[in-house]
Design a protein around this nucleic acid. Structure first.
Lengths: 141, 141
DNA sequence: CTCTCTGCAAAATTTTTGCACTGCT
DNA sequence: AGCAGTGCAAAAATTTTGCAGAGAG
């Protein structure tokens, strides 16, 4: 998680201008654990930045992702979600309420090696998604 | 992989009618290792079934998935891919050419238990995606 | 013969793009 | 001042839906 100064510096270093919108998008992502989609992000930012547009949200998350500051999550819904936590970790989605939570890194170096051997690929990245029912939804039932 | 008779029986058992389109969609998926998207499926079937429509492709894969006969793959492209191989296995996508290959099951029961403990979820399902460069693309470079 | 399925076209949803204006640097 | 960025609206891409006619049981 970067603060405004660090983010500002990083954007400049990479030739991107520093705008209130870009800071706001990153800040919104850094301050939630909810893994918002573009729509949720837009809804959060709209009140504070009434001129904010979807185009800006999408363009900004693309830049943030390119700079390695956020990761893009794809649980199989129609839309993507974004996460400012770029430490190695996986995600779990509740099949009842749809929420997405973090799962701490699974020490899986050996898995990757197995996959490289089995597939002939050289693996750069992986994403693990788990699906089940969260505690809250289990209790409701 | 089911043959036509088995598929016919299974559809009937579940109250679905058996139509040439449904058999064709399943057959197309059963006879490829390419993990086609709806568009690729449609392109494959169109020559043989000129009246085939996207609506039918989508409705059919939904039924096949509901019956547990195919799985839906989501590597983070805009569109979904489908796989008639429902044995436990993961997928790896080449970040250069985009192809998707199978990865044999990774004995990961202990991973799932770890995730359940860490998250408080009860896990029903998981999907692992690996990304890297395939052998062909590595050689080209 | 009934009722589901197909296939067309239109709608819905998410994301991308073009372009005039704004505002960083 | 120059040029990248914003924001609108239109376009693109994928998937869903409504409905009339076709066809499976």
């Amino acid at each position: 998680m970067l603060n405004n100064q660090e983010l500002t510096a990083l954007l400049r270093q990479n030739g991107y201008k520093v705008t209130p919108q870009r800071l706001a998008v990153y800040e919104a992502l850094a301050n939630t654990k909810q893994h918002p989609s573009a729509e949720m992000l837009f809804g959060t930012l709209q009140p504070k930045y009434p001129s904010m547009s979807f185009a800006t949200v999408y363009k900004t998350v693309e830049i943030l992702n390119k700079l390695g500051l956020i990761q893009i999550i794809n649980t199989g819904e129609d839309s993507f979600r974004y996460d400012a936590d770029i430490s190695e970790h996986s995600h779990v989605q509740c099949t009842v309420c749809g929420r997405v939570d973090d799962v701490p890194a699974l020490n899986d170096r050996s898995l990757v090696v197995k996959v490289e051997e089995a597939s002939g690929y050289s693996i750069d990245k992986h994403q693990f998604y788990f699906f089940g029912v969260c505690e809250k939804c289990r209790k409701k039932h």
